[in-house]
Design a protein around this nucleic acid. Structure first.
Length: 285
DNA sequence: CGCATTTGACCGGCGC
DNA sequence: GCGCCGGTCAAATGCG
């Protein structure tokens, strides 16, 4: 997997994906999602038409890391956080960050290949889990906003980590592109959302705002999710096999996610573990 | 005292 | 050419 992901990232960095962006939407009560990486806030703007300010962060794990992210509340539901990642990390990541990194890079890779998205024009969302692994107040309406802030000048992948309306999207869903030129691909990992990024900012400085280091906490829901994930692994595997076998590009994205889930639930052998702070590892148990 | 956030200024792209 | 707007910079500020 390490080789595979590195290959993907190489591909990403060498092609136009430098401009590709990965948009992640997740329900999050904290000012910013904790994705395991260390970010430094360098700006904030009030976007036109949106009362919520948009914050700009830069990856500070490595001084030369080009990765940036924008964090903004979803206008129609302030509890939803829209995080847009841009660029690819050029340094090893802590395990807690590989979840996002591998998922986004794989998603970007899938977007680049362009083969898969066109094959799913209007297919209904796939449900691989069958039920949500995390229960939380679910708003009545779907949140697949139409790539609102995008200027269509660069391809954007949307990872949807919101628990969507019950009937169809409780699990793991892939949404079809809507823009023929720069397709916007929506991936939904709603069952993962609260587990991977549940922790809360903290950190120093003014408002106690954006120092989202790898100090995220694993609460009970995280453990519960892990257990449930493993218990459903057989079913998941079977379904994934069908999906993956039918789409080589989607394969890479799925593989990244699976590896992440496996890594979280099992050991920390997979890529990046060597950079985990001890405190973070302790929090896993 | 060091470091991160805050926040107004600045810059470049884009549409008119 | 001008103005708007998104994105970035950097001095000021605040916290540990």
């Amino acid at each position: 997997m390490k080789t595979q992901r590195n290959g993907e990232e190489d591909q990403i960095s060498q092609t136009s994906v430098k401009r590709a962006r990965v948009c992640v939407r997740a329900r999050c009560d904290t000012p910013t999602m904790n994705d395991g990486c260390q970010w430094r806030k360098y700006g904030q703007k009030i976007a036109k038409g949106n009362p919520c300010p948009r914050a700009y962060y830069r990856c500070t794990v490595s001084p030369s890391c080009p990765v940036r992210k924008q964090v903004q509340r979803f206008m129609e539901d302030m509890s939803i956080l829209i995080t847009t990642y841009e660029g690819t990390h050029n340094h090893p990541l802590p395990l807690s960050a590989t979840a996002m990194a591998s998922t986004t890079s794989a998603a970007a890779s899938m977007l680049l290949s362009g083969s898969s998205t066109s094959q799913l024009p209007s297919a209904p969302p796939m449900n691989l889990y069958g039920q949500p692994t995390f229960t939380r107040t679910q708003p009545p309406s779907p949140y697949f906003i139409s790539n609102s802030s995008s200027t269509n000048s660069s391809p954007t992948i949307t990872l949807d980590l919101i628990n969507n309306p019950p009937s169809s999207n409780n699990g793991f869903t892939l949404y079809s592109p809507s823009n023929p030129r720069f397709p916007t691909t929506n991936l939904s990992f709603s069952s993962m959302a609260p587990t991977v990024w549940g922790g809360g900012g903290g950190g120093g400085g003014g408002g106690g705002y954006a120092y989202t280091t790898s100090s995220y906490k694993h609460d009970q829901s995280y453990v519960a999710n892990l257990n449930q994930a493993s218990s459903q692994q057989a079913q998941l595997t079977e379904t994934l096999t069908k999906v993956i076998s039918s789409d080589p590009s989607f394969r890479s994205a799925i593989a990244a996610v699976i590896s992440t889930m496996a890594a979280n639930g099992d050991t920390r052998k997979i890529d990046g573990g060597e950079h985990i702070p001890a405190t973070n590892q302790n929090s896993l148990s």
